[in-house]
Measured scan of single mutants.
Amino acid sequence: SDPSEDRAPESARVGNIPSSTSALKVPQLKVAESAQGPAAAHTTDTAGYNAMEESVSREKPELTASTERVNKRMSMVVSGLTPEEFMLVYKFARKHHITLTNLITEETTHVVMKTDAEFVCERTLKYFLGIAGGKWVVSYFWVTQSIKERKMLNEHDFEVRGDVVNGRNHQGPKRARESQDRKIFRGLEICCYGPFTNMPTDQLEWMVQLCGASVVKELSSFTLGTGVHPIVVVQPDAWTEDNGFHAIGQMCEAPVVTREWVLDSVALYQCQELDTYLIPQIPHSHY
């Protein structure tokens, strides 16, 4: 159930021909089969995070001529859309010479989310990475209204306002976009420790780096000194050995919190207090 199309920051360009055919990675995205229709094609874990990302398996898109002007500035990904909605975005992107990729990268400028009429969405990996990267996180209605009015409308009017977990109007995407000089995790050293489900560890690490944190791979690698705040992030329900995560405190002095601390902080683009996310640790033995 991992969102495989989000696994690594590679891009698939639509609308320009790469210098070599080997560089072309066409979105071959799968549809989750469901008797209840597209709305039930998501699996949500206890964290309220949509693990099964969206989309559609299609034939290789038709490439435009390399001489045609390509908008190098805009690059989009989509999240939560049905196959039909994805194809509408594809046509919109081609019309406006926008790069459409299946994986979010540093070059991505827009994340197009499936939302309700009030621009509230589910939480997906692309949603988190879009906010963390200060990108435009907009409703699919931006595409449909632009098509209806036959011009590209202003993104401000379609920015995602909230999500089904953290609140319907928290304005996290807007706050992140306007606060890239004040990253929420700066001054923190974060170790993403142990197993994680539904989200590859490297993507979680990239997320906290985008928010200004330094990533530490091992508990023994924390910088011990003033001005640096170490934090260990774990996902308790992913551990097979009972309560192993309670013993992390015996290996390092850092506070240990659940992954929800990261996800909530990123969604709201406000660093949350650790208290409600802390995992009790077995104290050091004193002999």
Score class of each variant (00 low, 15 high):
192 C>V: 08
282 I>K: 15
5 E>H: 09
117 A>I: 15
274 L>R: 15
97 H>W: 06
284 H>E: 10
6 D>F: 03
262 V>G: 02
194 G>S: 07
53 E>I: 05
119 F>T: 02
229 H>S: 11
220 S>G: 05
6 D>V: 06
32 A>V: 12
163 D>P: 00
36 Q>C: 09
31 V>E: 14
198 N>E: 15
42 H>V: 04
51 A>P: 15
51 A>L: 06
206 W>K: 02
140 Y>S: 05
213 A>L: 02
35 A>V: 03
284 H>A: 02
27 P>Q: 08
140 Y>L: 06
257 V>W: 00
230 P>W: 06
186 R>V: 14
165 V>N: 03
245 F>L: 13
182 R>V: 07
151 K>Y: 11
222 F>V: 13
258 T>S: 15
49 Y>H: 06
186 R>H: 13
4 S>R: 11
54 E>I: 03
106 E>G: 10
166 N>V: 11
15 G>P: 04
123 R>S: 01
281 Q>W: 15
251 M>T: 13
131 I>S: 01
101 T>G: 04
16 N>V: 07
5 E>T: 12
75 S>P: 01
40 A>F: 15
147 I>L: 06
216 V>G: 14
226 T>Q: 15
13 R>P: 06
256 V>P: 13
54 E>M: 11
119 F>V: 02
14 V>M: 04
56 V>Q: 07
9 P>L: 06
234 V>M: 08
254 A>W: 12
191 C>L: 13
257 V>T: 00
116 D>T: 05
91 K>G: 08
40 A>L: 11
247 A>S: 14
261 W>G: 00
147 I>F: 12
267 A>K: 02
107 E>A: 10
86 F>N: 10
164 V>N: 02
184 I>Y: 01
57 S>R: 07
251 M>H: 11
27 P>N: 10
259 R>L: 02
119 F>M: 15
280 P>Q: 13
37 G>E: 10
179 S>G: 11
110 H>S: 00
74 M>K: 09
256 V>L: 15
22 S>R: 02
269 Y>M: 09
40 A>N: 13
287 Y>R: 07
283 P>V: 09
265 S>R: 02
195 P>S: 04
122 E>S: 05
195 P>T: 11
117 A>S: 10
254 A>R: 15
157 D>S: 08
141 F>K: 03
254 A>S: 10
8 A>V: 03
155 E>I: 12
212 G>S: 00
182 R>Y: 14
27 P>C: 09
8 A>I: 07
273 E>S: 11
114 K>S: 09
160 V>Y: 00
229 H>G: 12
42 H>G: 08
166 N>L: 04
197 T>C: 15
78 V>R: 05
5 E>N: 12
141 F>V: 04
29 L>P: 12
200 P>R: 08
16 N>R: 05
90 Y>V: 07
187 G>I: 03
36 Q>F: 07
124 T>Y: 00
89 V>C: 07
165 V>T: 11
2 D>T: 09
198 N>R: 13
238 A>R: 14
33 E>L: 07
142 W>L: 02
119 F>R: 09
285 S>A: 12
194 G>T: 07
263 L>Q: 04
12 A>S: 07
196 F>W: 13
123 R>A: 01
262 V>Q: 04
134 G>T: 09
264 D>K: 11
26 V>P: 10
6 D>E: 05
127 Y>L: 00
254 A>F: 15
117 A>F: 13
181 D>A: 08
136 W>N: 15
128 F>H: 01
284 H>N: 08
17 I>Q: 05
151 K>S: 14
161 R>T: 10
190 I>T: 02
93 A>L: 07
180 Q>V: 08
174 K>A: 04
6 D>R: 12
149 E>L: 11
283 P>R: 09
180 Q>P: 11
266 V>E: 02
164 V>S: 10
116 D>L: 01
101 T>L: 07
3 P>C: 03
175 R>T: 08
222 F>Y: 04
187 G>R: 11
34 S>A: 04
277 Y>W: 02
2 D>A: 07
8 A>R: 07
72 K>T: 14
241 E>K: 12
276 T>R: 08
287 Y>T: 09
138 V>Y: 00
275 D>G: 14
183 K>P: 14
223 T>W: 03
209 Q>L: 11
66 S>L: 06
243 N>E: 11
18 P>Q: 04
35 A>R: 09
217 K>D: 15
284 H>V: 07
33 E>P: 09
103 L>G: 15
239 W>G: 09
157 D>L: 09
138 V>T: 06
253 E>M: 11
21 T>L: 07
243 N>L: 12
249 G>L: 14
179 S>T: 09
84 E>T: 03
91 K>M: 08
122 E>L: 05
23 A>G: 02
171 Q>D: 08
26 V>Y: 04
259 R>T: 02
167 G>C: 02
54 E>N: 13
62 E>T: 11
129 L>I: 12
136 W>I: 04
82 T>R: 05
189 E>V: 08
97 H>S: 10
88 L>E: 08
16 N>L: 11
246 H>N: 05
132 A>L: 01
27 P>H: 08
227 G>T: 10
34 S>T: 11
45 D>A: 13
50 N>L: 12
171 Q>T: 11
281 Q>P: 04
28 Q>V: 07
258 T>E: 05
21 T>P: 15
103 L>F: 09
107 E>F: 07
101 T>H: 11
124 T>A: 00
169 N>I: 07
285 S>W: 09
17 I>D: 13
73 R>L: 08
